[in-house]
């Protein structure tokens, strides 16, 4: 708890209201946010750019993750594919964040009170950390993991799952269960073909798809909430 101040005097408020809401309000009154809100075309074009970035990001993530799951370009070493799509992944991520920031400037007050938005931000951070620290590092090492890798993986997974349980509705939980069931069924079918290292890589791919899909779904859900 913290103490906030308004025209009527002091009152008890949350730390988020004291620090995050005030910075959202300050941003909301900035010249840039004013300009975004005053224009009738900036938000629609930023929305279109956001979708195109999503398409490229999805392609770059899926090309590698499908390969790790034994699908798609199965004749190619994952490390080579990963290095090829890395520039697309980085460029698409930068475009998605830039266009997303412009979209956010247009409705900061709504976003501050939007659970899908905060889940999306948390899930995006988890997805980026997981992709860079775990998935890509594992691919480079051919699936050989050290204790530190497992520990980081569990930390990212547990914090993502805690946020998911705290903020999701039963619809989102059902969707997650179905996705996990699909991955489990695929792993069962491939059980005799994978070595331990390959299983770990496939698990990382399933985890990566889940995090990126959750981020994108939550992003779309901001408009429906």
């Amino acid at each position: 708890m913290a103490t906030c101040e308004d025209a009527q005097g002091e009152y008890q408020c949350s730390l988020a209201d004291k620090y995050i809401l005030t910075s959202f309000d300050a941003l909301n009154d900035s010249a840039l946010a004013m300009a975004v809100k005053a224009s009738s075309i900036v938000v629609p074009w930023a929305g279109a750019a956001h979708l195109l970035a999503l398409a490229a990001l999805g392609g770059a993530v899926l090309i590698v993750d499908l390969r790790l799951l034994g699908l798609g370009l199965i004749g190619r070493p994952p490390a080579a594919l990963q290095r090829t799509v890395q520039p697309i992944f980085i460029a698409a991520l930068i475009c998605a964040i830039a266009s997303g920031a412009i979209l956010a400037l247009g409705e900061l007050r709504k976003l501050y009170y939007s659970p899908p938005y905060w889940f999306k931000i948390a899930s995006l951070a988890s997805a980026i950390l997981f992709t860079v620290l775990i998935r890509n590092a594992l691919i480079e090492k051919g699936g050989r993991a050290r204790v530190r890798t497992y520990a980081t993986w569990i930390a990212i997974g547990a914090s993502w799952f805690a946020v998911f349980i705290a903020m999701s509705n039963n619809l989102a939980r059902t969707a997650l269960l179905l996705l996990v069931a699909a991955f489990a069924a695929h792993a069962w079918r491939q059980r005799n073909q994978w070595t331990y290292d390959e299983r770990l890589l496939a698990a990382a791919a399933a985890f990566s798809i889940t995090l990126w899909l959750a981020t994108a779904t939550a992003g779309r859900w901001i408009a429906f909430y």
Binding site: A55, G58, G59, L171, W221, F224
Partner: peptide, 23 residues
């Protein structure tokens, strides 16, 4: 829920469709 689910599925499948065709 049905309309948002259909709409979200439509938009998210762009990742699979446009993402792969781009590659």
């Amino acid at each position: 829920y049905v309309w948002p689910i259909l709409e979200a599925t439509h938009v998210l499948t762009i990742m699979l469709f446009a993402g792969t065709i781009m590659m």
